[in-house]
Design a protein around this nucleic acid. Structure first.
Lengths: 206, 206
DNA sequence: TAGATTGTTAATCGATTAACAATC
DNA sequence: TAGATTGTTAATCGATTAACAATC
């Protein structure tokens, strides 16, 4: 059941291109080239051209790419030319940091609800959010047709919360807990475990 | 200047294997197989055997792998059979979450110092840490021969802080800021940008 | 022994790079 | 025009998988 014949590894680089193009635009640049973009990202210009060619033709020979135009196209391709509502589960230290993070809104995401299972936390505030009971979560997500969740709960709670999210119709989960979760086909998941990244690097540190 | 002929992509999976083996051990399991491990991780058994074979022979035909033995070997390979001192730069919400995170210590890492550039934060406490002035950072890192840093500063400060870390002799940086940093050869860097992960997933969400 | 699983080889598959015609 | 850069093709490179002898 293929949903797209674009290699997943290519899709994963598009957000990086978009981020760098947005930065270039903020610097006041108007035009760039695959070479310049590649240099800033540590990627070959050939790879950038090949990746972009999967989606269409966005440049001009001899000139390069119009930065704002290309960025718009990439936003459309990634479907972040809209604002996705996201629920956050877990209102510990990490949940607080995620809830307060200002970097989501102008990149396509808006946290709309924050949940926790701990009765002592429910009702408390994080910025403008009131922490809500997970017991209400499945209903809320279904009613509001929310498709994306961020998971900032302890590892021991991650699978049971994930099962609830899946039941509610969530299609994409960003998991901060250091665990491998079981999810059905069709639901996307991405993991953030800083320790995996540190351990990857220590291999190379003398 | 090759430091190892082990493919980087293989090195990146070893921490994942280690994490799952640690979880299995916590469940009281003693023996596993490449098939079982692969099933839990969503990776083929052939790939796991091939990856491990890059480093040695750790299993027994007909039996599988002793979980604690294999975990020990992987810790040694990744050099997390020791405790690495890590400095954290940035004491905002995210810095607080990272500083308070309890998941580093038993996986090879210990935050020893927390820095910020904001004079109003310096001297304040995060748990047992006292937030210190970045002005003292380069000296501290050199004196204590610290090799690893975590960066939780705003994007606009990330490059200048990175330059300081590199000057101080830091060899590995885990960067939470959504930027591409310039670093010299020989310094390792890994990035955590949750928005890149979300945008990767929205491509596939109908 | 019979059954199971490793470690490894060879085949397959997929990703990256080099090169260049097209063309702005 | 002359110079530059795209989009694409073909070649190269690297990673994954299938298969199986070895052996516990």
């Amino acid at each position: 059941m293929v949903r797209s014949n674009i290699p997943n590894i290519v899709v994963g680089r598009i957000p990086l291109y978009l981020r760098e193009l947005t930065e270039m635009a903020a610097e006041g640049k108007v035009i760039t080239s695959s070479q310049e973009l590649g240099q800033r990202l540590g990627i070959s210009s050939a790879q950038i051209r090949k990746d972009l060619s999967q989606f269409g033709e966005f440049g001009k020979q001899g000139t390069g790419y119009n930065i704002t135009f290309l960025a718009e196209q990439l936003r459309r391709i990634l479907k972040v030319d809209r604002l996705w509502s996201v629920v956050l589960v877990g209102a510990g230290d990490l949940g607080h940091a995620v809830a307060n993070y200002g970097g989501f809104i102008d990149r396509g995401f808006r946290i709309t609800r924050v949940y926790d299972i701990d009765p002592s936390k429910i009702g408390q505030k994080i910025g403008t959010f009131t922490i809500q009971d997970v017991a209400a979560m499945v209903d809320d997500i279904q009613k509001e047709r929310i498709k994306i969740a961020m998971l900032a709960v302890p590892a021991s709670d991650a699978q049971s919360v994930t099962d609830m999210l899946v039941e509610a119709g969530i299609q994409a989960i960003l998991c901060y807990a250091p665990v491998s979760l079981k999810i059905p086909d069709g639901v996307k998941i991405q993991y953030i475990d800083p320790v995996l990244r540190l351990q990857h690097m220590t291999f190379y540190v003398p």
